[in-house]
Nucleic acid binder design. Structure first.
Lengths: 178, 178
DNA sequence: GTTGCCATGTAAACTGTTACATGATTTC
DNA sequence: GAAATCATGTAACAGTTTACATGGCAAC
């Protein structure tokens, strides 16, 4: 039992951050606190246990320090593999509908770890699923908007427009990468 | 101690749903599962404890049934007050930056519970905070984009475009309501 | 008559939040 | 030398997920 290692989204966010350069726990907290990156908690009670989890799973490890500087953590080989696996896993319908942010995070971390073909596959898949979803939303709206209260209708429109914006981004990003 | 009743976002989502018509636990689950509404868990282990919470706080109560039909829950007077309080609370910077969905949900639930002036105040506040945030993002982008990896840059652009879309929605919605 | 959905719940494990605690280093 | 920030952690608690369990009712 307990064969599967199931890192949380936060775990992957940390792995993605340390894929380039090692960071201290505090450094990670600062990134989550100060940059626009992610809605991840930057509280010590979240970050330090998460780092411990990654160490336990052998996805991250302490950097051997020469001097007595602060302890920093780097990604392991196993961690890189697991991160890459997460990055290139097929996109699910549910993710497009409710977890756009997570997909964007995955894209952001693909820079060096994923080859160009896989990036394009990812973006095309994202694009196609978005098209279908937008269609569904619009069909629903055509059929139901007369029965919907004004505010529900307006909020629904926001959903449609948001997804259209993401679709445009997909198109543009594909053309940038090609 | 334990004076404060702090409903979770899920609690408010349920309260908003039952502000009109009573629903059963299963009915609530179906809404979360089938409609585009919210990213809220529809698992029984989440919904039923949440309903119990609401009952404990006296924000929702069982509907007295004549026949032996399934138990449904309705919002109480206290629940309506608490919901309204949540709806009209001032928007914080952090919410605009990281919790757009929650703000949209609040707007969707305002239909009958909040008067027109308060709706407009809400939308103007949302709009103003968005303008500032977009400015900040663009300033950051101008200064830093040359140091940013391609994927980070592209993901960042998505963030800017998303917020612009929401800003447009605000403008349009204000004009619809006025 | 059995398959599938309606309907409600519980238990264990885990994650995340909040608050507390501590000490070093930097800045004014 | 006081205040702020760097830096790491722990403990209690609350909420969510996952899996399990159960029974009624409808359809075919």
């Amino acid at each position: 039992m307990k064969k599967d290692i199931k890192p949380t989204l936060l775990d992957f966010a940390i792995l993605g951050l340390i894929q380039d350069q090692p960071l201290s726990g505090y450094g990670i907290r600062k990134v989550f606190e100060e940059t626009a990156m992610g809605n991840y908690s930057n509280s010590p009670g979240t970050i330090y246990p998460a780092i411990k989890r990654l160490e336990k799973f052998e996805l991250a490890e302490k950097v051997l320090q020469k001097d007595t500087a602060k302890t920093r953590f780097q990604i392991t080989q196993k961690g890189l593999l697991r991160l890459k696996e997460w990055l290139i896993q097929p996109i699910e319908k549910k993710e497009v509908e409710k977890k756009t942010d997570e997909l964007l995070l995955r894209f952001a971390f693909m820079e060096t770890l994923v080859n160009k073909e896989q990036k394009i596959i990812f973006l095309h898949s994202f694009q196609d699923l978005l098209k279908t979803y937008i269609q569904d939303l619009q069909t629903f709206y055509s059929n139901e908007s007369n029965n919907m209260p004004l505010h529900a209708r307006l909020a629904f429109q926001h959903g449609i427009e948001s997804n259209k914006t993401t679709l445009k981004w997909c198109k543009n990003t594909i053309s940038v990468l090609t």
